[in-house]
Design a protein around this nucleic acid. Structure first.
Length: 810
RNA sequence: GCCGCUGUGGCGGAAUCGGCAGACGCCUCAGACUUAAAAUCUGAUACCCGAAAGGGUGUACCGGUUCAAAUCCGGUCAGCGGCACCA
């Protein structure tokens, strides 16, 4: 088979027949298969793209042959830093490089033979897309889910931009690894925390990898505790949050975050200088230092005292940067006896340590941080754990000093970027009216082409006067645009919705189109998005639902992560490791089908692993073998009227139906390597049968057809080419997938493992349909069994039908 | 430190519910075809002892439950991923 000619031929024919477009009129059930769209980078498709899109496309094809009306779109996540960085380096405009890259990638994706519905293609950098991204922003703003606030943000001095929490890795920029510093800026946020509880509880019903769900649970970080008011002597109220209110009688001081609003107010004049110095150094400490858990605790006494509401005890108020301003109330009660951090701090600063929890078993070694028996706590003495906490929090509530409280670690999503290559934020800053959203009719706020993107700490757009100077939609006076653009994760939070209605120019999508095609039935993509894209997209879906634009709660019903293909040396493929393997040479030599088959066969799909190409020749050989065999069988004369159907035929029929059942099951489960293995077995069985002197030609032809149909999703061009020879004239991908015939899987006899005292002594064929007693009797008569039974009796017999018989003798 | 995952031949990896460990493939070896090689085909291929028949040991390690454990339970070790002062 001329591989290249075959691939071209079928790609053209598929395109001409518009075979991969979603069929609006079909009455088959819809099935939405989605792969995470890709960033249009300059390089060609790498192995990761092939590994994600190839097998996932085979899954889509499988679903189609199983009778679904499959929708599988593709597009480009086209805004983002790399294009801008490339522009800074080379002077090529991000728009130009991005468009060129998209063109190349589209071509390559078509060459893969994937059945993407290109009529629904989405490119996030195009006006008719980002117009609606801006629209999304406005809806969230209207709903009170987008707000602006001055906040300490993660600032990358090298990229000259603010980073989301998720883009900071170990205190360094995810992209360039420069240390991240803190800086105060007025920024836009999305109130994702408003949905924290639903984002958490919604995970339970999703068919997602447990690992990913767990990561999101962790990220959301729900904690149930208690808020307690400590009254300062100044009269100010210091509210703290704790998960261990059962230790409240052991509080020996209170700690505020340096950024706490009361920090300065509570400081007495003689401590002011020291406190100011501490607050200042905390503000300038970079994130690496501050986030390091092993770092020695630092803090400073404010000079004031507060009162513990449960026992009236007077305790000092400290500032320390081990308390985070952004979590809970920004203040904690310190119980050094039962918290490691408080213990370390109290030890360093000579503060009292008082035990109020007793270890239920053995000696109590401080700090003791587990649940235990309350002591020294008046009426609560003797209570343990959750019961203790419930009682104490109820008491605090009764005192009017706080009560039960749920907190989440999840922070609001910072979406402002001081960058050029993104969707402009559609608001105007008016000296009279303040922040004014751009009216929807004026969207899109167009991203100008002629900008200076060299970074100098200002947003590139801020330097573009024509863009910046505008009039206030409210009062008509002179006003300025917002110079920032939106995080690209905003663009990718709703693209799966736009696919459903890509040409709509009156709305991002119609509700009918979205409700018809969504949610996505199976979503395939990398695990690295667990706490970013996948969380943001869920948030968008829920927010849009609450605004009445959608009628479902979750965007992605089933999620599958492909593994990562590493370099041959076991490291991540990267230029710096010099271990990048290009798919091109393989595709050139063996063809797209063989390469796709090998990716499916050589790895466990969700695991991935180091690249090695040892098996790719074997795959090419396998395809050749199938081709020769199928064509040879096709060449046999039409069958005679009555053909033999004996033991060999039964065996072939068994192999055929076994393969059908197992391949179907494996495809459904993304267990592609075993699916291909079963196809190899069937090929072997068919070849063995074909070599017999006498054979049932009709059965052989049917089996060959099934073989081609079973392979079709995995090697699409190859299968079309064979199907053209042996099939019924239609496209193979439009044909129904074979269905197993259970009757053909019932054999007259099965091989049993025969065990004596759980050790295998022999294997034997035993006829189907015998009772357990009959099987036992049969087994007892076997010579291998008899030899081991002399002078002994059978005490017990375990029969696993069709598998084994175990005689316990003694 | 916390949460999660993984550990199976020389290699990639299989093994619904606990039921014949090592499917399928690579590598290697032997044989057939060939003057020869390549290609192709056939067979062998977990490890140890043994010429063989056969016997023994094996799913990171230690222990437990069970007629039966790669699979379940407890502990240990190693690797990977995530979170990381969240009170």
């Amino acid at each position: 088979m001329d591989i290249k000619a075959t691939e071209r031929k079928w790609q053209l024919r598929w395109e001409k027949a518009k075979l991969h477009q979603f069929d609006e009129k079909s009455d088959k059930p819809k099935y939405y298969v989605l792969e995470m769209f890709s960033y249009p980078s300059g390089a060609k498709l790498h192995i990761g793209h092939w590994y994600n899109y190839g097998p996932a496309d085979s899954y889509a094809r499988y679903k189609r042959m199983k009778g679904y009306n499959v929708f599988q779109p593709m597009g480009f996540d086209a805004f983002g830093l790399p294009a801008e960085n490339y522009a800074i380096k080379t002077g090529v405009h991000p728009k130009d490089s991005t468009e060129k890259n998209i063109e190349t990638m589209e071509k390559q994706l078509r060459a893969m033979g994937a059945m993407f519905d290109w009529s629904a293609e989405v490119k996030t950098c195009e006006e008719d897309y980002y117009k609606w991204t801006q629209w999304m922003f406005l809806q969230l703003y209207k709903k009170g889910l987008a707000y602006r606030k001055e906040a300490p943000v993660n600032w990358c001095p090298s990229c000259q931009t603010v980073l989301a929490n998720e883009q900071v890795v170990n205190g360094a920029c995810e992209r360039c690894s420069s240390p991240v510093v803190r800086k105060d800026l007025t920024q836009w946020f999305f109130k994702i925390t408003e949905y924290a509880e639903e984002l958490l509880s919604g995970l339970d019903g999703l068919d997602w990898p447990e690992k990913t769900k767990n990561m999101q649970r962790n990220w959301i970080g729900k904690s149930t505790g208690c808020e307690i008011d400590f009254t300062a002597e100044s009269g100010d109220n210091i509210r703290v949050y704790t998960t261990r209110c059962d230790t409240v009688y052991g509080v020996t001081y209170v700690v505020l975050a340096p950024e706490h609003p009361l920090a300065r107010k509570l400081t007495t004049p003689e401590h002011l200088a020291e406190v100011e110095a501490y607050i200042d150094s905390a503000a300038h400490a970079n994130e690496i230092d501050r986030l390091s858990a092993t770092r020695e605790k630092t803090g400073v006494f404010t000079g004031s005292y507060a009162v513990n509401p449960v026992n009236g005890r007077r305790i000092p108020v400290y500032l320390a940067d081990y308390v985070l301003a952004s979590y809970g109330t920004g203040a904690v009660m310190a119980v050094p006896a039962h918290d490691e951090r408080d213990f370390a701090f109290a030890t360093k600063y000579g503060l009292p340590i008082e035990k109020v929890i007793e270890c239920p078993s053995g000696e109590t070694v401080l700090p003791y941080c587990e649940d235990g028996i309350m002591v020294g706590s008046v009426q609560f003495d003797g209570l343990i754990g959750q019961e203790a906490r419930d009682s104490v929090s109820a008491y605090i509530y009764k005192l009017g000093k706080g009560g039960k409280k749920v907190n989440y670690r999840l922070r609001d999503w910072l979406v402002s970027r001081q960058r050029y290559w993104g969707a402009p934020i559609p608001v105007v800053h008016c000296p009279k009216c303040g922040v004014v959203p751009v009216p929807e009719k004026d969207l899109p706020v167009k991203l100008p082409y002629d900008v200076e993107f060299r970074p100098d700490g200002k947003s590139p757009l801020a330097k573009h006067e024509k863009f910046m100077n505008t009039t206030c939609p409210n009062c008509g006076g002179a006003a300025m645009r917002d110079p920032d653009t939106l995080d690209t994760f905003v663009c990718s939070s709703w693209y799966y919705l736009r696919y459903a209605d890509p040409d709509n120019d009156r709305a991002p999508f119609s509700r009918e189109a979205a409700d018809k095609l969504l949610p996505v039935d199976t979503y395939v993509g990398g695990a690295e998005h667990a706490c970013m894209h996948l969380l943001y997209a869920r948030f968008f879906t829920k927010a849009l639902r609450d605004m009445g634009y959608l009628d479902f709660d979750e965007p992605f019903k089933r999620l599958v992560h492909q593994g990562v293909i590493l370099g041959p040396d076991g490291n991540r493929m990267s230029k710096s490791h010099g271990n990048i393997v290009s798919p091109d040479d393989y595709v050139e030599q063996y063809g797209a089908d063989a390469f796709r088959l090998y990716l499916m066969f050589g790895f466990s799909y969700t695991e991935g692993g180091p690249w090695n190409d040892d098996g790719i020749k074997a795959i090419a050989k396998f395809m050749e073998r199938v081709e020769k065999l199928v064509l040879k069988i096709d060449g046999y004369k039409k069958p005679k009227e009555q053909e033999r159907y004996g033991a060999e035929e039964k065996a072939l029929d068994y192999a055929r139906n076994f393969a059908i059942g197992r391949v179907s099951r494996d495809m459904e489960a993304f267990s592609f390597n075993t699916a291909i293995a079963r196809l190899m077995e069937l090929t072997g069985a068919l070849a063995k049968y074909e070599a017999l002197p006498e054979k049932n030609i009709a059965l052989m032809k049917e089996t060959a057809k099934d073989l081609v149909l079973l392979i079709a999703p995995c090697a699409p061009h190859f299968a079309e080419e064979l199907w053209e020879e042996i099939g019924d004239g239609d496209f193979v991908v439009e044909h129904d997938y074979p269905v197993e015939d259970p009757a053909k899987l019932v054999l007259d006899e099965k091989e049993y493992a025969v065990q004596v005292n759980s050790k295998i002594v022999t294997r034997t064929m035993i006829a189907n349909g015998l009772s357990n007693e009959e099987i036992e009797a049969f087994a007892r008569e076997l010579p291998e069994v008899k030899a081991r039974m002399e002078g002994k009796t059978v005490k017990k017999c375990v029969v696993v039908p069709g598998r084994l018989v175990n005689l316990i003798v003694g």
